[in-house]
């Protein structure tokens, strides 16, 4: 028997899992380096969603105090701490993305491709050349 109420009550976690696995799958499966970064972003965003959704208090309003600091006793506020944490994590994510894209630009300049297979082929050729050269020099022991 499927417990539908359980599934609906945890909707935010299902969304988080869906996003996380989507992002993770893109990182693993795509060969294009830019697409990998996009996947990494989706992966990170899933965590932002997790944090923000757990900060929600049902019936709670935005956690901003009135200017006179006189709060109504009946008013419930959402938890602002996860939002603050995620603000930091978003900044980290932006920095990571910018750095990854900068690396991709440099890789494109050096290798002439941003496809993983193409890069791998070039690197394998380099390694094979090294192995032949250094293996011979070491008396075929390498």
């Amino acid at each position: 028997m499927i417990d539908w109420q359980f599934i609906i009550d945890h909707a935010n976690y299902w969304l988080f899992i869906l996003l996380m696995m989507t992002g993770f799958y893109i990182v693993v499966s795509r060969g294009n380096l830019v697409k990998k970064v996009v996947g990494l972003n989706i992966f990170q965003v899933s965590v932002f969603m997790l944090y923000i959704s757990i900060g929600k208090v049902s019936g709670g309003t935005a956690p901003i105090l009135p200017v006179d600091l006189e709060t109504e006793p009946g008013v419930v506020y959402s938890n602002p701490l996860p939002h603050v944490l995620i603000l930091t994590a978003i900044v980290v994510g932006v920095a990571t993305t910018a750095l990854a894209l900068a690396l991709i630009v440099r890789i494109r300049e050096e290798y002439g491709t941003i496809d993983e297979d193409g890069i791998l082929a070039i690197e394998q050729a380099i390694v094979r050349g090294e192995n032949v050269r250094h293996g011979d020099a070491m008396g075929d022991r390498a």
Partner: peptide
């Protein structure tokens, strides 16, 4: 970040 990406000589 914008300068770094926009300022690179177009190679492609």
């Amino acid at each position: 970040v914008y300068y770094a990406f926009a300022g690179r000589p177009p190679q492609m």
